[in-house]
Design a protein around this nucleic acid. Sequence first.
DNA 1: CGGTTTCTTGATTGGGATCAATAGGAGTGG
DNA 2: CCACTCCTATTGATCCCAATCAAGAAACCG
Lengths: 205, 205
Amino acid sequence: MVGTRRKIKRHTHLYRSGDGFEAIYAIRAGFFKTDVLLEDGRDQVTGFQMAGEILGLDGISTEHHSCNAVALEDSEVCVIPFAKLEKLSREVTALQHNFHKVMSREIVRDHGLMMLLGTMRAEERLAAFLLNMSQRFVARGYSQQEFHLRMTREEIGSYLGLKLETVSRAFSKFQDEGYISVQQKHIRIIDIPGMRKLLNHQSPE
Amino acid sequence: MVGTRRKIKRHTHLYRSGDGFEAIYAIRAGFFKTDVLLEDGRDQVTGFQMAGEILGLDGISTEHHSCNAVALEDSEVCVIPFAKLEKLSREVTALQHNFHKVMSREIVRDHGLMMLLGTMRAEERLAAFLLNMSQRFVARGYSQQEFHLRMTREEIGSYLGLKLETVSRAFSKFQDEGYISVQQKHIRIIDIPGMRKLLNHQSPE
DNA sequence: CGGTTTCTTGATTGGGATCAATAGGAGTGG
DNA sequence: CCACTCCTATTGATCCCAATCAAGAAACCG
């Protein structure tokens, strides 16, 4: 099920909003963000994707992509022509089922993010973000406590519905309180259980 | 492609978070909301669904539903066993393609909501919500300007990441400014182009 | 290096949350 | 049909968290 490979340099687009849709992409190596743009110039990062994850599912519905996918570091993807995927998944039940799960997982993930954006305060959002990154890194065989963020404070803020200053302050506060140690984009989570507690903290009502 | 029918009374669940997943549901008549619940009691409405729309896609990924679906009025759904859908869509290309589009549309919709939750202020959110409802009603042959909301202010607020008081105030303000007329859940949009402008209004930066 | 982007930190502001009180409907039972 | 209750909605007053404005510092990069 491997299509052709394609290398994407840092800060270049894999696809842009409006581009015709022909394929989805499996990330082989690297790191991406997806974002949507409003007419008035406001934009929002809708996700960060790393090796093993799928990009481009947004394009199926209208045959055109509805967001931009940008590499945050030099990356490589596997191009999976969608027509071919549909054909194969008619023949291979397991592939079909797996593809449906991938799409569904994306929907569930988005619901989680909506929850975050709709109900959490700034520090909870950052804690949830860091724990999520940690979890995804560990699933790829990297350290659970220590990792390098590929995105800027502004991109994190856009993703979490916060301004970059707020993100920066929350980082500093977590460091002061001994939850993490921050050095620019290098993060070390010192107290994972403590961070988890930040999330469940009973909010008013 | 019609499965069995099922009637759902107002304020009862079609499915609950954690329920095993076997089928998706096409709404034949009525109105639903879906919501997710956090351990600490906070919850968020993730969507409102009306006739012709699909419920249950969240369950595919883990074989368990990850949100609750509740009828906001007496409703009727068509139960589509998922195994049967997958089997049929292996045989009927058009069905397969259509199903993929439905899932993708859900992803794109969620991105739009993330945008709303992440970047818009209270009145923009409500304007976007009303225009979206209007658009969906008109697509079903109802009036574009006049409709009955099935959900409470609190449910609207939860969906939009606002408190019910804020929703109520925004309704009042829109009425004062002549954009809409509100009488409880009965809404009449007087100035649709004006409402649209509220969305594109240049925000700072 | 020099220039630019990114990050941090402080001071102030403002939008929506919270607290609170009242009013309006809808549903229920007498 | 009306009285009662409960749920829902409106409106006002105050508060607080994050946005905004502003100034440096640090890191990255050609």
